[in-house]
Computed example of a mutant assay.
Amino acid sequence: MLQRAIVAFTVGPVLLLAAYLGGWFYFIPLLLLLLVAGVEYAHIMRALKHNTPLWLLLPAIVALLAAAWWPYAWGPQWNLGGLALFISLFAALIYALWLFERGDTLDAALDWFALVGGIMLLGWVGSHFFLLRSLPENGWRWTTVAFMSIWTADMAAFLVGKYLTGRWPLGRHALAPRLSPKKTVEGYVAGVIAGPVFATLTALVLDLPLVLAGLAGLAVGVLGLFGDLSISLLKREAGVKDSGRLFPGHGGALDRLDSLIWAVAIVYYLVVYLGPLFT
């Protein structure tokens, strides 16, 4: 618990400060985190007997993140993000065909899908860290809302699951016992409540539309869990407890980004599509 608290109250403020500063201060830390997560993802795939070469995966992640970070990359003239995604997926296809033709594996199709999964998760979904931050109005503020929503939802779920499970009638209902035995229905409900509450409080401080922030926090609280469980699925099938050891008490970079990476994408699309209704 102490290790978790130290990491949370160190890494969290650093990322919030980076989101506020923007530019290289934001790009470099998240790029490094996502690259470490890419290495951890490849190790998990290796444990599952899938070929996921870092020399393909990591450059694809860098290309997609850089395209999203450059403010004009997604414009109609260039669309560098679309180009980076196309080249990355096509390179993954060629690699799978080459593997099969060489006879190095009998699961070339699964190797292809594993590589594409890493590119899409850490490259394309991960690019929303920068798409959200690059919004022309209030980008860093909405990024802060996304961070606070998922962190408070996760913390509420953890505290309820840790201190109520097995002690009171509450906290005894397992949510997904095969994927994550320690998660409880009560913890999930606590996260769903905490997400919109703290998103609204954050919006109040940052002078953002409260209703939209509340909806964003609710969506993150409800849906963020599935990002967490998706990495749990990979780890369970691979037979590993944590994706890595980067953060003591928390696991690896992939463990810390599993729900956050989806939270920023959720908030991005809500702000883009619903934001005009609240201005």
Score class of each variant (00 low, 15 high):
105 T>G: 06
106 L>F: 04
106 L>E: 14
106 L>N: 12
107 D>V: 13
107 D>R: 13
108 A>E: 11
108 A>F: 13
108 A>K: 03
108 A>T: 04
109 A>V: 14
109 A>N: 07
109 A>H: 01
109 A>K: 08
110 L>A: 12
110 L>N: 13
110 L>V: 00
112 W>R: 00
113 F>V: 14
114 A>E: 09
114 A>Q: 07
116 V>D: 04
116 V>Y: 02
117 G>W: 10
117 G>C: 11
117 G>S: 15
117 G>A: 13
118 G>L: 07
118 G>V: 05
118 G>R: 06
121 L>G: 00
122 L>Q: 06
122 L>Y: 08
123 G>H: 08
123 G>A: 10
125 V>L: 15
125 V>D: 01
126 G>Q: 10
126 G>W: 02
126 G>I: 07
127 S>R: 05
127 S>K: 02
127 S>D: 03
127 S>P: 10
127 S>Q: 08
129 F>Q: 03
129 F>W: 15
129 F>L: 11
130 F>P: 04
130 F>W: 11
130 F>C: 01
131 L>W: 08
132 L>I: 08
132 L>M: 12
133 R>S: 02
133 R>N: 09
133 R>F: 09
135 L>W: 01
135 L>G: 05
136 P>N: 11
136 P>G: 14
137 E>H: 10
137 E>Q: 13
137 E>V: 12
138 N>E: 14
138 N>S: 14
138 N>V: 00
138 N>C: 01
138 N>P: 02
138 N>I: 00
139 G>R: 02
139 G>L: 06
140 W>V: 00
141 R>Y: 03
142 W>R: 07
143 T>I: 01
144 T>S: 15
144 T>K: 00
145 V>L: 14
146 A>V: 01
146 A>W: 00
147 F>W: 13
148 M>P: 01
148 M>L: 15
148 M>C: 13
149 S>V: 05
149 S>G: 07
150 I>L: 11
151 W>L: 10
152 T>W: 13
152 T>L: 15
153 A>P: 09
153 A>C: 10
154 D>S: 05
155 M>H: 00
156 A>G: 07
157 A>E: 08
157 A>K: 03
157 A>C: 08
157 A>H: 01
158 F>W: 14
158 F>C: 06
159 L>S: 08
160 V>P: 12
160 V>A: 09
161 G>W: 03
161 G>A: 06
162 K>V: 12
162 K>Y: 12
162 K>N: 12
162 K>H: 13
163 Y>H: 14
163 Y>D: 05
163 Y>T: 04
163 Y>G: 06
164 L>W: 14
164 L>F: 15
164 L>Q: 02
165 T>C: 13
166 G>K: 07
166 G>H: 09
166 G>P: 12
167 R>T: 07
167 R>S: 04
169 P>Y: 02
169 P>F: 05
170 L>N: 00
170 L>K: 00
170 L>E: 05
170 L>A: 12
170 L>P: 03
170 L>Y: 07
170 L>F: 13
170 L>I: 07
171 G>Y: 09
171 G>Q: 09
172 R>G: 15
173 H>F: 00
173 H>E: 11
173 H>S: 12
173 H>T: 14
174 A>K: 14
174 A>Q: 13
175 L>H: 01
175 L>K: 02
175 L>M: 09
